[in-house]
């Protein structure tokens, strides 16, 4: 395992080293020490690396990730794994707002809580949160899955498109056009798969599914005041 000291070489040094890692080389396992809450650590990776970050990170950690498996041993700041395309980002602590924002693919696991706007505008990512999520989570979520083992704050799934939300706890309130939907067998299968991937031992049948009522898909003159 190759080690990098962020305090010594800075964020640019760390990211340059990770991004330059040759495909198929032995340098696939990385440990980043002293992250010091800095922003944009391990961003823009595009190789099947394993990156472990020993400590709390700042904003946008693992942003735009492709292929790499990034583990944050601690708290993640705003926008963790934002715009991820593939691969995996795993947070052992909690995450600040907009976790997994606009991400197209891959798996984001947050063992603790995620703050507001978790999965905002998600476009295909799967997000599993061991704890609860804050207000406006799944806002305008377009596709992918958001699994929440705890509770959800206000306006869950506001203006949601075709993303699927699974919630085990209580929801403070549902956002516009978000409704509870029937949990069909294929949903239980998918949910079991996601919980398994996140190493969470919970019965899929104890979750409820939420999604779009599709009432805002087409222009309706009765809604004109709302636009």
């Amino acid at each position: 395992m190759a080690e990098l000291d962020l305090k010594e070489i800075g964020v640019r040094g760390v990211n340059a080293a990770l991004q330059a890692s040759p495909v198929g080389s032995n340098e696939q396992d990385w440990l980043i020490n002293n992250p010091m809450g800095q922003h944009a650590i391990a961003c823009g990776l595009d190789a099947p690396l394993k990156v472990k970050i020993a400590g709390h990170v700042g904003f946008y950690c693992g942003g735009m990730n492709q292929q790499a498996a990034i583990t944050i041993q601690g708290h993640a700041g705003v926008g963790v794994a934002e715009n991820m395309m593939s691969g995996q980002v795993w947070v052992t602590g909690s995450a600040s707002d907009s976790a997994g924002a606009t991400a197209h693919g891959g798996l984001l696991v947050i063992e603790g809580n995620a703050s507001s706007r978790c999965g905002i505008s998600m476009k295909g990512i799967d997000i599993v949160v061991g704890g609860s999520v804050g207000h406006m989570s799944g806002f305008m979520a377009q596709s992918g899955h958001l699994v929440v083992c705890g509770d959800a704050g206000d306006a869950l799934g506001d203006s949601i498109y075709e993303a699927i939300l699974f919630l085990r706890g209580k929801v403070s309130s549902l956002g516009a056009d978000c409704i509870e939907k029937e949990m069909r067998p294929e949903h239980l299968v998918k949910l079991a798969e996601l919980l398994d991937a996140a190493g969470i031992d919970k019965n899929p049948a104890s979750f409820r599914r939420y999604g779009s009522a599709r009432a805002l898909y087409n222009f309706d003159i009765d809604n004109v005041d709302a636009y």
């Binding site: 606009t102 505008s121 207000h135 406006m136 305008m140 206000d154 306006a155 506001d158 203006s159 956002g175 516009a176 056009d177 805002l216 809604n223 709302a226 636009y227």
Partner: peptide, 13 residues
């Protein structure tokens, strides 16, 4: 939070 001003937001995003 509650007003579905979807089309404005799509543009911003």
């Amino acid at each position: 939070v509650t007003t579905p001003t979807r089309f404005g937001w799509v543009l911003v995003i």
